[in-house]
Amino acid sequence: MRRAFRRSTYALVTAACLYAPAKAEDLQFSVYGGYQTAPHSGVDVSDGTHFNAGWEGKSFGSPPYYGARVTWWLENLNHPNLGLSIDYTHDKVYADEKTLATSGWSHFEFTDGLNLLTANALYRFPMEGQRWTPYVGAGVGVNIPHVEVTRPQGKTFDYEFGGVTFQAQAGVDFRITDRWSTFVEYKGTYSRVNVPIDSGDSLKTNIITNAVNLGVSFHF
């Protein structure tokens, strides 16, 4: 599953970079990190188990929270302020100590990634004579979490297909040179996670994440 996930990610990013109608000067590549949190969510297991999970983000712990995206601005289609992006985000959540005590599980987290891959539409608001450019965006995609569950019935430790993810973002880009810029943004995601775990059971939860990102972009 891990190898298939990596192949799919590389294929989608490569397709975005090589998309035929795009001119090189309309493309930008961005990387970012930041501080990510997640509110509580209900957890349902097919064996009848239910509890509320309190999540910790631990954004700067290993593995850290990070992301990357490729954006194509539609300048050659006479829509210079409209963009399309492929965005990969390595979100992560750890069940807190209270959740583990309540559930009776000794380990519960998605920390080698609540991996999100989304396709998004972006719109920017250039300000004449200014290097600052505000922007907003929204999109939809999939989540592929690394499921880590240890409970009395068994253990799960693998990448699984979770389901659909929705994403929204708003930020400001600051142009440093013709090629480089930096940005700060808010990004929110909503992921419907439905994954198999040990003993033939399945686990469902809906995870919301909130993140403040700081990143850098290269403009081709």
Rank of each mutant, 00 (worst) to 15 (best):
D96Y: 04
G54R: 04
G200M: 03
P196W: 05
S191Y: 02
A20C: 10
Q130W: 15
Q167M: 13
F174E: 03
G113I: 03
F183C: 00
A121S: 08
P39H: 08
Y10C: 12
T102A: 13
G57C: 02
A4C: 11
N120R: 11
Y19W: 14
G57W: 05
T71N: 07
Q167Y: 09
A53S: 11
T150V: 14
N210L: 04
T71Y: 02
P64I: 13
D112S: 10
I197S: 00
L203H: 01
W55I: 06
K155M: 12
Q28W: 07
R7I: 15
H107F: 15
L77R: 13
T102I: 10
S103L: 02
N194T: 12
L77A: 15
D158N: 13
R7E: 15
S85R: 04
D201W: 10
Q153L: 15
F220D: 00
L82M: 09
Y19D: 03
G154N: 03
A16L: 06
S46R: 06
T99Q: 03
N78L: 09
A138P: 04
V13N: 10
G188F: 00
A170S: 10
N52Y: 11
H40S: 15
K92A: 05
F161Q: 10
L203A: 06
G137D: 01
F220C: 02
V140A: 12
R175D: 08
N115E: 08
